[in-house]
Design a protein around this nucleic acid. Structure first.
Lengths: 334, 334
DNA sequence: AGAACCCAATAAAGCGTTTTAGTGAAAGGG
DNA sequence: CCCTTTCACTAAAACGCTTTATTGGGTTCT
């Protein structure tokens, strides 16, 4: 691989001149510019970005830390992040934590070693305070979807309580009084907020809460599957189920299919998070939709404001509103 | 951020000693080791990986270049790649090309600037020969799923022709003679091989091919949707459809739902690529399954063989066999 | 004509590591 | 007792760039 030195020799100019010309098309005399350009082309020279990063103190790379890219919520977010990163000529490193605080720590450590200019994170657990190690001034980061309450940073979140409230209120309006909840991880704010929305929807219409109807599915497919089986096995099973994320919805649907419970005739179902197939599933699934791609782009934009230093001093928290998409998986109880 | 210099001063040793101790726990005297370790902890020192990369000539980063992470096939592959990268203490940069050769070129250019130690690529189009620019010796890469025939490198592929053959043969055995094909991009080997499998299955039982039944869906959701609508609008519509990838399957299913065509009673459907929801879709979808996650891990392992120099001289091509998963979306024609 | 500028071009410093070559002291060998 | 090894440790070079300070020649101004 040719270096800038080789180009300088070939063009018979100094190293400094090559650098200047390459970074500023208007630098120097016409002859020198053309000599440098010709040499660059001839040698197929490509500047070494590592060397450049070292002197500039920027790598033009950011990281995205999420539980699992296979969760469609996060793949959509990731795509949004990558798109704005591309716009700024940045690349993005993908980090799957599998909800594991240890893996998350490892990733954070590598970031502290100057490998990225900033990162976007959906925390595995808000009980882990390791994030405090990164000084937000030096290495900016922004929360997406889930955050650590003690550690301040910009955040893009969804009003989870509102989303859950909308879903459960809808079910209550349809006359359901035994509504199962396949809940999310209780060590995430997201999980707790959706639980809170479920409870508060009941309270606001004076409906009773049954603790046996609320089961933690841990935000995973398997968890959703097991929780649904448990719900179905109850002596008095629910007439409707609200599932707190899309991974668990898949598990839930699988359990319902296995048990041959018909939707919506025998049970009504609402999932949190839309997906491409929900629309033409039979029956089409009623869901709470989050603006996933937009969350990714917004998080990206804010992060770049921080990186480029154009962000205001105080941290911003953007709260997006989820939307209830009514399709055909719920029926009124007569 | 403290540098190695600060640690050296704090520990009252030389810079070189700090470096040695940090990279070799057995170096030097016990006193010096403990002095260095204490200073490191006290200052919260984290080595600067950029500086290290510069001298070592390795960044410990690889890239994954794919059309779109939102395609479940690629999200599963990506997860496999990330998992083996983690094992080797590498990070992975995610690059979406949107099937766009220009975007792909931009990514390749940034790789040539030493930012990654190697990459895994599913080419956007095999008509683009830009890949030839990266000298496989200097910057190793491995193909996944799709490759450029002119440019040699390790490859992990699926026997696409065989997969398509299995699906279409099954349909033919069930008595179908008008089988629609929602085909993939003709400028990818993958797309052409699946088409070839479709044709060859017909030929092997002496069935006629109807050119009006083969429509290019470009591997996208919209393409699949449009192709299916076109198929349905034929004066003599097909009794079965074989769809050459999962994105197009979603579009196809959407078109069928809109047209209220019942599966499998009015039309039989087989998709290429399994997905989490296919199993409990109603009806459960018969599909050709590819070992996506495994493809990712294999590609990763081979790439690391190259990076670490443990790979054999000659390029390896691993061909995996897809599998027909029969569920309930096809019926026999009486 | 001399002072004051401006512009092209460059030498050299610096970014934070690893590594090579080397120093000095202690240990081992004849 | 001198010569050779071994060991702990270090100074300095190198990695490939960007940038700062500087030189030297040509203009412009007074």
């Amino acid at each position: 691989m040719p270096t800038i030195k080789d180009v300088a020799r070939e063009a018979e100019v100094s190293i400094a001149s090559v650098s200047k010309v390459l970074n500023d098309p208007n630098y120097g005399s016409v002859q020198m510019r053309s000599r440098v350009m010709r040499a660059t082309r001839k040698l197929g020279y490509q500047p070494n970005n590592i060397a450049r990063s070292m002197v500039m103190g920027k790598t033009k790379i950011i990281a995205l830390v999420i539980p699992d890219i296979r969760n469609q919520f996060f793949t959509s977010v990731a795509r949004g992040v990558e798109d704005v990163a591309s716009k700024y000529e940045y690349r993005v490193i993908l980090c799957n934590t599998d909800e594991d605080a240890t893996k998350q720590r490892e990733y954070i450590d590598t970031f502290r070693s100057k490998i990225v200019d900033g990162f976007i994170i959906s925390v595995a657990s808000d009980r882990d305070q390791y994030l405090a190690k990164v000084d937000g001034q030096t290495l900016p980061f922004v929360y997406i979807d889930r955050l650590c309450e003690g550690i301040s940073a910009d955040a893009i979140v969804v009003d989870n309580q509102d989303g859950a409230h909308k879903a459960v209120s809808y079910l209550l309006e349809l006359g359901h009084r035994r509504i199962g909840l396949v809940a999310g991880k209780s060590d995430t704010l997201t999980g707790r907020e959706r639980l809170r929305g479920y409870q508060e929807a009941h309270e606001s219409v004076g409906a009773n809460l049954h603790s046996d109807l609320m089961i933690d599915g841990g935000f995973t497919i398997e968890g959703g599957y097991e929780a649904t089986k448990a719900l179905l096995g109850l002596s008095q099973p629910p007439t409707a189920i609200f599932i707190a994320n899309n991974a668990m919805t898949i598990g839930c649907l699988k359990a319902l299919a296995e048990a041959k419970v018909k939707i919506p005739d025998e049970i009504s179902v609402i999932g949190f998070d839309d997906s491409e197939w929900a629309e033409f599933f039979s029956p089409p699934l009623t869901v709470v939709r989050q603006p996933t791609y937009t969350m990714g782009t917004l998080a990206g934009e804010i992060l770049f404001q921080r990186i480029l230093g154009t962000a205001p001093q105080e941290k911003q928290e953007i709260v997006l509103r989820p939307e209830l998409v009514v399709r055909e998986s719920c029926r009124a109880l007569s």
